[in-house]
Nucleic acid binder design. Structure first.
Lengths: 112, 112
DNA sequence: ATAACAAATGAAATCAATTTCATATGAAAG
DNA sequence: CTTTCATATGAAATTGATTTCATTTGTTAT
């Protein structure tokens, strides 16, 4: 009988790596509102195009984003089903626990 | 009127960094079953004590774990409220999407 | 107060992911 | 078929987090 609670730790790591980076999180935040093409994303988060492209590639490989070609533009869409619930949980966690000794900072917090 | 959908990206990053590392994910997996002290964790995941301690510190700072002193032992407990639902979502995601071009590998997958 | 065990810590070394920059590819329009 | 706009890619450089190792702190028992 196989143990279902056992995790493939390295696989999960590969997923979470995408959320552990400011550029990628900024992209996710931008796409939360609506699908955007590469140029629009780069402008929205104020980062270089190639930097954004590299990030988009990994996010897409892990199915956190989806791409669709539209003319010469490539439009990226957030995988809402997976990403939104996770962000909600973390949002709640950060708000609940952000405090003196915690590296987590929520929007309301004014910390050094 | 403030925009509630705006995320503090760097803060989220600080949270997710803890999940983007094999050692820390192994610790989380071990603590999923029951609380353990440092020595027990190190044995369970077969890693050095100081390596485990460094990881435990960060996990605890981010409130992913909680500590309690018990005699000379320190017992670490997983923050189930936050962590379990996240892992469930990722588990589902990985099972759903693991495939040829995806770096994510679920338990059932035999990939190079 | 000392020994024995458990865990934490600091700093240097290592490692892996991100960024950068120059270049290549691809799509549409003229 | 050449130009232009949009994006992707490869490889070197950089960055930042993790690991390692020696040492320290803390707890309990003698």
């Amino acid at each position: 009988m196989k143990d279902n609670s056992c995790m493939a730790a390295s696989s999960y790591k590969d997923f979470f790596v995408n959320f552990a980076n400011k550029t990628k999180m900024d992209i996710i935040a931008a796409l939360r509102k609506k699908p955007l093409c590469v140029g629009e994303i780069a402008e929205a988060i104020n980062e270089e195009q190639s930097k954004v492209s590299h990030s988009l590639k990994k996010l897409t490989q892990c199915k956190i984003l989806e791409v669709k070609q539209e003319g010469k533009k490539r439009v990226y869409t957030l995988n809402h089903d997976t990403v939104l619930p996770i962000l909600q949980i973390v949002e709640k966690h950060v708000h609940q626990y952000c405090a003196k000794n915690c590296p987590l900072k929520c929007l309301g917090c004014k910390k050094k």
